[in-house]
């Protein structure tokens, strides 16, 4: 009866690997725009991690954090893009 917990642990592990891959692209991206793309992926990844974490520690309040982060990630990438365009 422990399938679900194991699934969550596997998901945690794989999301960590995704975070690492995105960080590699973030470090070596040729232009600033590649880094913004990697930042977008990192935000989506972190939302997934937070949501899974809120199940592991049974703390339903953490969903609010994911909700706020989904808005602020958009704001961050848009403001970086505008900075690029206006520079």
């Amino acid at each position: 009866m422990n399938i679900f917990e194991n699934t969550l642990l596997i998901a945690f592990f794989v999301l960590g690997i995704c975070l690492l891959l995105a960080a590699i692209r973030f470090a070596m991206g040729p232009s600033l725009l590649d880094r913004i793309t990697a930042f977008d992926l990192i935000v989506a990844n972190v939302i997934g991690i937070i949501v899974i974490y809120s199940k592991l520690t049974v703390d339903a309040e953490l969903i609010d954090v994911a909700l706020i982060l989904s808005l602020f990630g958009f704001l961050g990438s848009i403001s970086f893009t505008y900075y690029m365009l206006r520079r």
């Binding site: 596997i10 998901a11 794989v14 999301l15 992926l41």
Partner: peptide, 18 residues
Amino acid sequence: SVLILMGVFFMLVAAIGL
């Protein structure tokens, strides 16, 4: 768990593609 595994698979594909 099926939904979560599918989501994680697509996320991994996106990261490798990046």
